[in-house]
């Protein structure tokens, strides 16, 4: 896989293997935060940002420390700690330097420490043995794909509030059915790579 072109990785992560619709990662924010367009966008950007950082951090740790020493089996523990530490550092840094950005993204940062989508990108990069550039591009694609879907979903759900839904379908069931239809339309991207 390591010769896959960067564009192919990007398109594949953002559209074809979309993290929410095709890999079921990051479903908690997907169903939890997607009720409001503005929150969804902030959440998406925060996730994208942390994904990039996490891919960079975990790639460095895995390729430079764990792999040369044959410690691959430690990756689960190490990745979680790396991501949690990075998020903490970022949170403290933007709190000190850019208070506007902190107010926009701040509350989402601690939430996404244990977001499966972020950890998912890290494991995916390791499993496909991507190099540094490929890891970053795949994180960028995954983050943009995540943001795209969560924003589309929140737009639809804002409309849903006003519509007349059969009682058993109210709330989560209708959200799942909408996700089905989004997934079906995203299947159309399948032929692109």
């Amino acid at each position: 896989m390591s010769d896959t072109s960067l564009i192919a990785i990007f398109v594949s992560m953002a559209l074809i293997n979309n993290f929410i619709l095709a890999k079921f990662l990051g479903l908690c924010p997907f169903f939890g935060v997607s009720k409001n367009l503005k929150n969804a966008l902030s959440m998406g950007i925060a996730v994208l940002f942390v994904m990039l950082l996490a891919s960079l951090g975990t790639w460095i740790i895995y390729d430079l420390i764990l792999e040369p020493r044959g410690l691959e089996y430690m990756k689960i523990i190490v990745y979680i700690l790396v991501i949690a530490t990075l998020v903490q550092i970022v949170e403290m840094t933007i709190k000190r330097t850019n208070i506007t950005l902190y107010n926009a993204l701040g509350i989402y940062l601690p939430l996404i420490t244990t977001n499966c989508a972020v950890l998912g990108v890290a494991f995916w990069n390791t499993q496909e043995s991507y190099n540094l550039a490929q890891s970053l591009i795949s994180a960028l694609g995954a983050g943009i794909g995540f943001t795209l879907v969560i924003v589309i979903m929140s737009g639809i759900r804002e409309r849903l509030e006003l519509s007349n839904i059969p009682k058993p379908f109210k709330g989560f069931p209708i959200a799942f059915l909408i996700a089905t239809m989004l997934g079906l339309s995203f299947l159309g991207f399948g032929g692109m790579v």
Binding site: A22, K23, P168, F172, P173, F176
Partner: peptide
């Protein structure tokens, strides 16, 4: 068996159980 089918099955089962 495609990924999107899981959303469909879960959505319908949830609605059925509620009904």
């Amino acid at each position: 068996i495609m990924p999107t089918g899981a959303f469909l099955v879960i959505g319908l089962l949830l609605a059925l159980f509620r009904h």
